[in-house]
């Protein structure tokens, strides 16, 4: 689905990337621990997180995350918005908690970027 449809489902506010709402997304990963995002998230996925600092943008840049969804009604810090604009990574914000955000997206066809963790090395 498009990021625009994601925005609709989550009744989300767009903080960065009004002009990027037509990108396609199929998968997502949710975590507040950036090291876990680095270890498990895959390129092209949505990142669902409750963090608001610039490291969510750096992590997304490193992994080629398609867009960041900030959950629990939090707002990105000003420096986070600036960095996301520079690196062209969309940031949306939703009032839904992480569980609801994931559930609502899953019900509409977005799946996890991985289902379970693997004991062997896998790179995307």
């Amino acid at each position: 689905m498009t990021l625009r449809e994601v925005q609709k489902i989550l009744e989300a506010e767009v903080f960065v990337g009004y002009d990027q709402l037509d990108i396609e997304v199929k998968t997502a990963f949710g975590a507040d621990l950036m090291s876990d995002v680095l270890a498990f998230a895959k390129a092209g996925s949505l990142l669902l997180t409750g963090l608001t600092n610039p490291q969510i943008v750096r992590t997304s840049d490193v992994l080629d995350i398609a867009a960041i969804i900030i959950v629990r009604g939090k707002r990105p810090l000003p420096e986070t918005i600036l960095l996301a604009e520079e690196l062209k990574i969309p940031i949306l914000g939703t009032k839904y908690i992480l569980f609801e955000t994931a559930g609502r997206l899953y019900a509409k066809g977005i799946v996890g970027c991985i289902e379970t963790v693997s004991a062997t090395r896998e790179f995307s």
Binding site: L38, A43, R58, T59, V62, L63, D64, F123
Partner: peptide, 29 residues
């Protein structure tokens, strides 16, 4: 994270495959 962003951009400019550049960026980060 600034260095990782630079390293990834540099490696991509050198036409290094994205999967490899991404791993380099992750460890740098």
């Amino acid at each position: 994270g600034q260095v990782s962003t630079q390293v990834k951009a540099l490696l991509q400019k050198m036409k290094i495959p994205i999967k490899i550049a991404r791993r380099a960026a992750i460890v740098t980060y």
